[in-house]
Design a protein around this nucleic acid. Sequence first.
DNA 1: TCGACATGTCAACAGGCGTTGGCCTACAGT
DNA 2: ACTGTAGGCCAACGCCTGTTGACATGTCGA
Lengths: 193, 193
Amino acid sequence: MTGSTDTTKARRSDATRAAILTAARERFAADGYERATIRAIAADAHIDPSMVMRYYGNKEKLFAAAAEFDLRLPDLTGVPREEIGSRLTAHLVDRWEHDDTLMALLRAAVTNQAAAERMRQLFAAQLGPVVAALVEDRAEAPVRAGLVATQALGFALTRYVLCLPPVVALDRAAVVAWLGPTIQRYLTGEQGE
Amino acid sequence: MTGSTDTTKARRSDATRAAILTAARERFAADGYERATIRAIAADAHIDPSMVMRYYGNKEKLFAAAAEFDLRLPDLTGVPREEIGSRLTAHLVDRWEHDDTLMALLRAAVTNQAAAERMRQLFAAQLGPVVAALVEDRAEAPVRAGLVATQALGFALTRYVLCLPPVVALDRAAVVAWLGPTIQRYLTGEQGE
DNA sequence: TCGACATGTCAACAGGCGTTGGCCTACAGT
DNA sequence: ACTGTAGGCCAACGCCTGTTGACATGTCGA
């Protein structure tokens, strides 16, 4: 370290670190964990592969840094009860479309244990509490959150990864109109309709 | 070829071919396309890696052979209209639990283009017609089939691949009770509930 | 009995991977 | 102006991969 307590000062290497992280997210998102190579990431960031190692230690740690993610879920407790399904759906779609990170996480989680664990933590730590705040019976919260994950991730999988044509063709409004009620039921409805 | 028109005669190597295919399915299902190595598959089948090449040409063709899959969807046109959601859900869950092939296809499709294309064809060729037979407006069939895929694959992803604890914990009846109505709405319901 | 062909083993190849250590360069503190 | 150090490049390592070709064995028809 240069200073004693100065952790805020920008170092010259910060730009490189950021470039690596951006490139890493793109590659992990596009190729998955094993096919995204350190060499390719370094090339995208216009630096040497050894720099990646210097700044992030190894590939696993690089992924951990690149997969840091905040769903930024809104507080839904004040929203009219019948709207929370569509509101949550719309938010998730937006979040998915404008950030590579979730894609990287999803693609990697399918073949990488650490990434899968990260995904579990993400839903437990971020979606879980939001759902718990909406649900009457607290014991039901994890199941309901899990069901929401089921539909949300399934949509992302079929639209962005598998690219099933009819799912890709849906516009934002149609997505919310179709998926919103499903999410709504998982949050506030009952089994067997 | 040994005979001229004799394609039914069992060759000595058929057992080996089958062993390779079984091992390949298990490895692809457990590890995904790139992490499932020819060497590991050959070891599981108790043969030399070069045999895999001789019988299946290359890894890509081996996967194509291993990922041959029939959803065996039942004819739902005779089923009471309000039951088709749960019937289809139950069938899909059963199919998923008792055959590695779908798992191999899913895990591989996330990082492998050819596998993704196979998955698209599977849904277009097998789920598509079944949905088309149930739907009133034929033009809506692809979208509805896509939505079903969304929920079906999302469930498989979260339960078998990501292993989200609350989703793993659901028993068969709970799965059908929760997902059945969703599938039902995608098949026969309307947008926005 | 003999030879052709199917079945299977072994060793090696070329290339890509994550990762390492040494070397050069340029800037900051004194 | 000098020097320590951070930032960056290069070459190489050991390993694993898909794939290949030469060689051994066994089986069956002529």
